[in-house]
Lab assay of single mutants.
Amino acid sequence: LRLEVKLGQGCFGEVWMGTWNGTTRVAIKTLKPGTMSPEAFLQEAQVMKKLRHEKLVQLYAVVSEEPIYIVTEYMSKGSLLDFLKGETGKYLRLPQLVDMAAQIASGMAYVERMNYVHRDLRAANILVGENLVCKVADFGLARLIEDNEYTARQGAKFPIKWTAPEAALYGRFTIKSDVWSFGILLTELTTKGRVPYPGMVNREVLDQVERGYRMPCPPECPESLHDLMCQCWRKEPEERPTFEYLQAFL
């Protein structure tokens, strides 16, 4: 395994491009020591290896001592969030954005069929390849993070704006909380990567959403798509659509 080009840095580690087995181009995620327990990670990795779908980033291998390494397929255009905010983002029109959403829903419909939960679905965790191919990455890892700023769910590192209220408040993460996050991801797509709930801080978002506030229809977004977002944001988790439905609708 060779680490060649550093692609990015996040709160919990770095991402590199490299070569595996001398020939395969891969992405390598390294986790800061202390982010998660190697034992817990190894268990999760076994499950992650079983998830194989064309719209999920394929896991190739893991190094399960500290520092933990995760070796996955390489996606040339990086994260969907950076892609939307970058040069190419300007030229993306609604049909392409909807197609990308459908690809993500397709990957998540598979996660749904496998009775698995992602827990951290957002544009930053979707990767883009050639020809606007989108794949879901980092599934299941969020559960293992041991950082206090994260586990408190009120901490600075927790993605509260993407998280369903029952998950943020009571830790009830299910495929239905993933559906909520998918609704937020749809706003990221239609606004080219704007942060959700602009002008609001995490605490406010939690309070307002509890009181029934939902983001309005983004500019140039059809009402039918906003309606779909609002279905994803129904207060009762069981009233939210399935990913199978979302995939078919898109």
Rank of each mutant, 00 (worst) to 15 (best):
V57E: 04
T163W: 00
F158Y: 02
A137D: 03
N202H: 07
Q43R: 09
E146Q: 08
I175H: 15
Y60D: 06
K176A: 14
D82Y: 04
R214C: 09
H226E: 09
K85M: 12
T187H: 08
G199D: 10
Q46E: 13
Y170A: 06
W16D: 14
S64Q: 07
L132E: 11
A156P: 01
S106T: 10
M48S: 04
F139R: 03
R119I: 06
L132S: 08
P38K: 11
E149N: 05
N125H: 00
M17S: 11
K235V: 11
G129E: 08
M17N: 10
V128S: 04
A105C: 14
K49G: 05
M114S: 05
Q154I: 13
A61H: 14
W162L: 01
V15I: 04
V47G: 02
Y150K: 02
K135Q: 13
L81I: 12
E236F: 10
I184S: 03
L80F: 10
N125S: 00
W180D: 01
K49W: 04
F158P: 02
T88R: 11
P222I: 08
A27N: 00
V117Y: 01
P159F: 02
L81D: 15
R25G: 11
E223Y: 14
R93S: 07
R113H: 14
E146C: 09
V47R: 07
A164N: 01
V195G: 14
E220I: 08
Y60A: 12
C217G: 10
S181C: 06
K77F: 09
V98P: 05
T30N: 08
N21H: 13
R25H: 12
P218M: 07
N202C: 04
A164F: 02
L92I: 13
Y150N: 03
E44L: 02
Q46N: 14
G13K: 01
W233E: 10
A45G: 12
R172V: 09
V57L: 10
G212F: 05
C217K: 12
E238A: 12
I126Y: 00
D99R: 15
Q9Y: 07
R93K: 09
I68G: 09
L94C: 07
L250F: 10
D82V: 07
M48D: 01
Y116M: 09
P38V: 08
Q154T: 08
A156G: 11
Q46M: 09
S37I: 04
A137R: 00
A137E: 02
L206I: 13
A105L: 08
M17V: 07
Y245N: 07
V71W: 02
R214Q: 12
A102V: 09
L246D: 03
V179F: 01
K6M: 14
T88G: 11
K32V: 08
Q247V: 11
V57R: 15
L127E: 01
A124D: 15
A137G: 14
R194L: 10
T23F: 11
R2Q: 08
N115F: 11
E238W: 13
T187K: 04
I68V: 07
L132Q: 08
A142S: 05
R113N: 12
R119G: 00
V111E: 03
P241L: 04
E130S: 14
E65C: 15
G10T: 00
F83S: 08
R93M: 09
T24A: 08
T35A: 12
Q9D: 05
F173P: 03
W20E: 15
A109M: 15
L246G: 06
Q154V: 13
E4D: 08
R240W: 03
A156S: 15
